[in-house]
Amino acid sequence: MRLDKYLKVSRLIKRRTIANEACDAGRVLINGKEAKASTAVKVGDIIEIRFGNNTTKVEVLDVKEHVKKEEVENMYRHL
Rank of each mutant, 00 (worst) to 15 (best):
K14A: 09
L7E: 02
A40V: 13
H78L: 15
N20H: 11
R77G: 10
E21L: 13
C23S: 02
R77V: 15
V41P: 00
R2C: 06
K68Q: 14
K33M: 09
L3H: 08
T56A: 12
K69Y: 14
N74H: 09
A40G: 06
K69F: 10
Y76C: 08
L61Q: 07
I13F: 04
E70C: 04
T17V: 12
E65D: 15
S38G: 14
T39C: 08
R2L: 12
A22S: 14
R50N: 11
A25E: 14
G52Q: 05
V63C: 06
A35N: 03
K42G: 04
N53W: 07
T39M: 08
K33P: 05
K8M: 08
R11H: 07
V41F: 06
Y6I: 03
V9D: 01
T56I: 15
V43M: 00
E70W: 09
I47Y: 03
A22R: 12
M1C: 05
A19W: 01
V9Y: 04
G44Y: 06
K5L: 07
N31K: 02
M75W: 00
K64F: 07
K42I: 01
N53S: 13
D4E: 03
T17R: 10
E21F: 01
C23W: 00
D4R: 00
V28F: 02
R2Q: 13
A37Y: 02
V63I: 11
A35T: 00
A40Y: 06
V63W: 01
T17L: 12
I13V: 15
A37L: 04
D62S: 14
H66F: 11
L3Q: 02
V67Y: 05
K5T: 12
A40Q: 09
L3T: 01
N53R: 13
I30H: 05
V60H: 10
G26V: 09
K8R: 14
N53F: 10
N20G: 05
S10P: 02
E59G: 10
V67A: 09
V41G: 00
E48C: 06
K36R: 11
V41E: 00
